[in-house]
Design a protein around this nucleic acid. Structure first.
Length: 1047
RNA sequence: GGGCCCGUGGCGUAGCCUGGUAGCGCGACCGGCUGAUAACCGGUAGGUCGAGGGUUCAAAUCCCUCCGGGCCCA
């Protein structure tokens, strides 16, 4: 395999082969054994949700993780590589309901909780397997056989422990609260589970009859007619001005500023009274539906006007209908005034007995029946529809309703200050992720409703005595087994529901609270639950807290937060110490990818078309990690192309190294340090690329430390494409063609070898498959090592960095490019040699660069001579009026007037013209002039940043003869290629042309032509005896007949 | 409605922290190479840096307002 490098390769096949090789040698095990004594690095994988398959976002997430972990591994850290899976919760329940063809909790109970839960488990495990394979195909090196899963008993036991901790600290509470409920899922939802979207809802103005005054009504606006049944009061703002107006519908009371609602419906009115809101307090009214409903209120304040600050004048009437059972603000107000908290709706959203005639109807859906009744009673002033934002269930998309229910909470308010302090203990990348965004979210955090009335989740470990109400929180599976005296199949419903405990106070029977935990709680405890703490202590003691987590910015409200809460509950600390936050993958227009828009691109598609390494490199390279990534196929292609360039570079190097039997070992290459022990006779371009390489290693490592992976990828990309392929390889090509042993050739090989072997290591975290392949062909034949991923990360060698040389080369490249441009203007091909290049510059560094790298300029520019001068030819100039305008804005006009009135000379421009404008001195120097060179016809020029490049375009006989010789060489080589000759084959050649002068010219270079084309014999004449393979050629209008044959 | 981020040639981006005549890649067009070759290289055109205002001798960069996109929240 020594320097065997296929010209063509299919990255996809390559990756599959490399992956089976990793399996074969058990790379994961080798990696872990190698670093088993290294410093421990606790990386915590945020568990993806085990449903569906991976998308570009998850691919990006795991790619970042994998790159970082592979890098840390190569530094010698003993890195944890446990992948996680989030397996519980409503999303899976909803999908399983669909599979089973059922729609409600009632149907679940009918088929049995056990069957349902088993289906959920099956579903989760199936998707764990599917996604595992997808991640493996991406080349993510993790311990896929030993993941942590939130559904395991171990994990659940840790959750019990955490809940018990919360209980012991007085943070676990059961409270009556009005919160969001999904009537389809029949469970409460946390704020985080509600998604807002625009919908159309009724908008009605209802007249609430006053009990104090006849034919007088309080005008109330609502968009949720169904909540009227639960109405217990009306709220007014104490400071606003209210009016009583006389209308054909009776006397109406509303806020003065909201009279426009009457104008909008063209109801004529006359103000008969005006007063402050506070004067309304305690006024009584009748429930508009009093005859239909069956609500009995006990509060003294029932059906009266109360005062509230939250009343606004932005919409509605300034009078707000209060239903404490159907709105969080109403609930707070209800507590404040001691109002009745009634909730005539059950968790399915169906009205209960209290709703009287409405019993059995559905909240929201049957709004129109209520509206009809109001209309019939003459209490509906006006009804229309509006479009507004309304909350929906995150999983089933059903509009949510607010209900007052008793739920279990974590009292986050109590620990908020501690949490805010703890944010600062973690390092956030970027900084604003923690200190602006996350902090904002934590500051606004409310108590966390952790109970859910569902089946597939971690059961609440709370038992309550049916007799005395005594409460017991269980802290582990073991504890539960000990207390119940029986072994438990598993810690899921329904098995755990069967466990009854004996009350230690009254000897009554204790039953488990039927709820399960909010699924966000599951992942919140990952930092210790994934290590099975407190069941096992050692891993936890060695590792906790996590050194690093890496997740998307949507996790601000999710995992970053749930971990903070759970960490503070359990250990009084934030359970992670560094956070790298990444963005979202959007389509190329910046729109979210969604099935609805049909713009979804899957990782499989990209791998299929280009390969996993291409995708990985692209994802890391495309933009700053924390910004959203706009996915563009064209950019993926660009990355693919540059990986091919890398491949070609290696192919090129391997080809010649193999032909020349180059062996790095024989030349003293140190395979630990990855460099040659001896110095070769390096040429300047070798020293230059070695300097660039070491600069690259330096920035590579600096950026990896900062986790700025985008800079790592970009620097690598630039080095490979710009420096190595486009410049270095171009420069050394002639050296590789030298036939005999030579120092020049050897030093080029040595340089290339060092670069490619080191690159294989640098590339390993980013494109692990290709890196492995290159390493296999360049390093493994000489070194006893099984994988590039078992190598140690290389360090840069400061003594090899030569900034001055790098700067010189930059200038020289600029000059050569300018000379190409000058050639282009006269349509002179690059193959045609020119006599002289003249560099006009006043910069001494440029002068030095041109002298040092003279050879490169001559060779690459194809010149015979170089001249460096301070001044060449004449100039013509004109004022750059646009620039003066941009620069001096308002003063520009006067400056231009002044300049135009003068006679400006070349000397003026060189020195700079001083102008006095408004007592201010302005210097107009050469920057403000458009300068053109005035040269003799034989010269052409092109400016560069530090001067001008001038070329002498005259072609004399000598140049002409060389040019033609080169043209002939090119043609013969083309023909060699057509005959499919090997690089080392020899030939005989014959050339025929009518032009006698040309024959003589070309004859001068017959040696050169033979050498370049490996021709043992060449004849050239007006008439020759041709060889086997003949071809006609037109070279600059001259006709040639050339023939060759292999010897 | 609020918080955070983003808005630079047709497209994707660098520069913004630490103000000083706007860089790169892709694409387009023109050309070259033919011993890395279904690759590779060069050149050219294209931008009032989302809009408006302010600070400053000087603003893509600092400040304010607005508009558009994303995430999160209400």
């Amino acid at each position: 395999m020594v320097f065997e490098f296929p010209r063509e390769t299919n990255f996809k096949n390559l990756e599959e082969n490399v992956q089976s090789y990793w399996e074969k040698i058990n790379l994961l095990k080798k990696v872990q054994e190698k670093n088993s004594k290294g410093e421990k690095f606790y990386f915590l994988d945020g568990p993806p949700y085990a449903s569906g398959s991976i998308h570009l976002g998850t691919a990006w997430n795991k790619t970042i993780k994998d790159a970082v972990l592979r890098y840390l591994t190569m530094l010698g850290y003993n890195v944890t590589r446990i992948p996680g899976w989030d397996c519980h919760g409503l999303p899976i329940e909803v999908k399983v309901e669909k599979i089973l063809g059922i729609k409600s909790k009632k149907e679940i109970e009918e088929i049995g909780i056990e069957k349902f839960v088993e289906e959920c488990k099956k579903f989760a495990l199936k998707h764990v397997e599917i996604m595992t394979n997808q991640f493996k195909r991406l080349g993510i090196l993790m311990d896929w056989d030993n993941p942590y899963m939130t559904l395991s008993d171990d994990y659940i036991s840790s959750a019990f422990w955490t809940i018990k901790k919360a209980y012991e600290k007085g943070l676990l509470e059961k409270k009556l609260r009005t919160i969001t409920t999904c009537p389809r899922c029949e469970t409460v939802l946390a704020e985080a589970e509600v998604e807002y979207k625009d919908v159309y809802d009724p908008s009605i103005f209802v007249m609430f009859p006053s009990k104090d005054e006849k034919d007088t009504y309080y005008l109330v606006w609502t968009t949720t007619p169904w909540t009227l049944i639960g109405n217990v009061a009306i709220a007014a703002h104490p400071d606003y001005t209210y009016v009583k107006v006389k209308t054909e519908r009776g006397n109406l009371i509303l806020a003065k500023e909201r009279l426009k609602v009457l104008e909008e419906i063209k109801l004529k009115y006359e103000i008969v009274d005006e007063f402050k809101g506070r004067e309304l307090e305690g006024k009584r009214y009748e429930h508009p539906l009093k005859d239909y409903i069956n609500v009995k209120l006990r509060s003294e304040k029932a059906y009266t006007i109360v005062l509230a600050e939250f009343v606004t004048l932005e919409e509605g009437t300034g009078l707000v209908h209060v239903a404490p059972g159907h709105g969080p603000e109403d609930f707070e107000l209800g507590i404040k005034y001691g109002l009745d908290i009634i909730c005539p709706v059950d968790e399915r959203g169906i009205f209960k007995d209290e709703a009287g005639k409405y019993k059995g109807l559905r909240a929201r859906f049957d709004d129109k029946i209520i509206i009809e009744d109001l209309k019939r009673l003459g209490l509906l002033l006006y009804a229309t529809r509006i479009r507004h934002r309304y909350g929906h269930c995150w999983r089933c998309d059903t509009p949510i309703i607010y209900r007052a229910t008793e739920q279990w909470f974590i009292n986050v308010t109590k620990i908020k200050d501690k949490m805010l302090k703890e944010i600062g203990k973690a390092e956030w990348i970027p900084e604003w992720a923690g200190f602006s965004r996350f902090k904002e979210w934590v500051e606004n955090a409310k108590d966390w409703t952790i109970s859910r009335q569902r089946y597939w989740g971690i059961p609440l470990p709370i038992w309550i005595c049916e007799k005395c109400g005594n409460l017991l929180v269980i802290g582990s599976k073991k504890e539960l087994e000990e207390l119940s005296g029986r072994s438990i199949k598993e810690l899921h419903r329904p098995y755990i529901d069967e466990i009854k405990l004996r009350c230690n106070k009254c000897n009554g029977t204790m039953h488990r609270v039927k709820d399960v935990l909010d699924v966000w709680f599951d992942s919140g405890i990952a930092a210790w639950a994934s290590l099975s703490y407190p069941e096992k202590r050692k891993p936890f003691e060695e590792l906790f807290p996590a050194k690093l987590i890496i997740e998307g910015h949507d996790q601000t409200r999710g995992w970053f937060y749930s971990q903070l809460v759970c960490g503070v509950i359990s250990f009084d600390t934030i359970p992670y110490r560094k956070v790298l936050m990444h963005g979202f993958v959007l389509d190329e227009k910046g729109q979210k990818m969604s099935k609805r828009l049909g713009n979804v691109v899957t990782p499989e598609e990209v791998i299929e078309k280009y390969s996993a390494d291409t995708l990985r490199f692209y994802l890391l390279w495309a933009n700053k990690t924390w910004e959203d990534l706009k996915f563009r196929w064209q950019d993926v292609k660009e990355i693919y192309d540059s990986l091919r360039i890398l491949w070609n570079v290696c192919y090129f190097a391997a080809l010649y190294m193999r032909l020349d039997n180059f062996n790095p070992k024989e030349h003293g290459f140190d395979f630990n340090e990855f460099k040659f022990k001896k110095e070769f006779k390096y040429k300047l371009e070798d020293l230059w690329i070695l300097s660039r390489l070491n600069s690259l290693i330096k920035t590579y490592r600096e950026n990896f430390e900062k986790l700025h992976l985008f800079n790592v990828a970009r620097e690598l990309h630039k080095f490979i494409v710009e420096d190595l392929s486009r410049w270095y390889i171009t420069l050394i090509r002639p050296r590789t063609w030298i036939e005999e042993e030579s120092e020049e050739k050897l030093s080029a090989y040595a340089t290339l070898y060092e670069i490619i072997s080191k690159l294989s290591i640098l590339l390993a975290p980013i494109v692990p498959h290709i890196a492995e392949e290159i390493h296999t062909r360049f390093v493994k034949p000489f070194k006893d090592i099984e994988s590039v991923h078992l190598e140690r990360m290389i360090e840069h060698d400061e003594s090899r960095i030569n900034k001055e040389l790098e700067d010189e080369m930059r200038i020289v490249r600029e000059i050569i490019e300018a000379s190409y441009s000058a050639r282009d203007k006269r349509k002179i091909k690059r193959r045609w040699p020119l006599k002289e290049i003249i560099i006009e510059t006043k910069d001494s560094f440029v002068e030095k660069a041109c002298k040092d790298l003279k050879e490169i300029i001559l060779k690459q520019g194809n010149f015979f001579d170089i001249k460096i001068v301070r001044k060449f030819g004449d100039i013509r100039f004109s004022l750059n009026e646009k620039l003066i305008g941009i620069t001096f804005k308002k003063k520009a006009k006067r400056i231009l007037q002044e300049l135009k009135s003068r006679k400006i000379t070349k000397e003026d421009i060189e020195k700079g013209i001083r102008l006095e404008i408004d007592g201010e001195t302005i210097i107009i120097d050469e920057r403000f002039f458009n300068i053109e060179k005035v040269l003799e016809r034989d010269f052409e020029y092109e400016p560069f940043s530090k001067g001008f490049v001038i070329i002498d375009t005259r072609i004399d006989e000598n140049l002409l003869s060389i040019a033609f010789a080169r043209e002939i060489v090119r043609r013969i080589q083309y023909m060699r290629k057509e005959l499919d000759l090997n690089v080392e084959d020899y030939i005989r050649a014959a050339i025929e042309t009518r032009n006698e002068k040309l024959i003589n010219l070309i004859k001068k270079h017959i040696d050169y032509i033979s050498r370049e084309t490996r021709a043992r014999e060449i004849v050239i004449d007006k008439k020759v005896e041709h060889k086997k393979y003949i071809k006609d050629w037109d070279i600059n209008g001259e006709l040639f007949k050339i023939s060759i044959e292999k010897i």
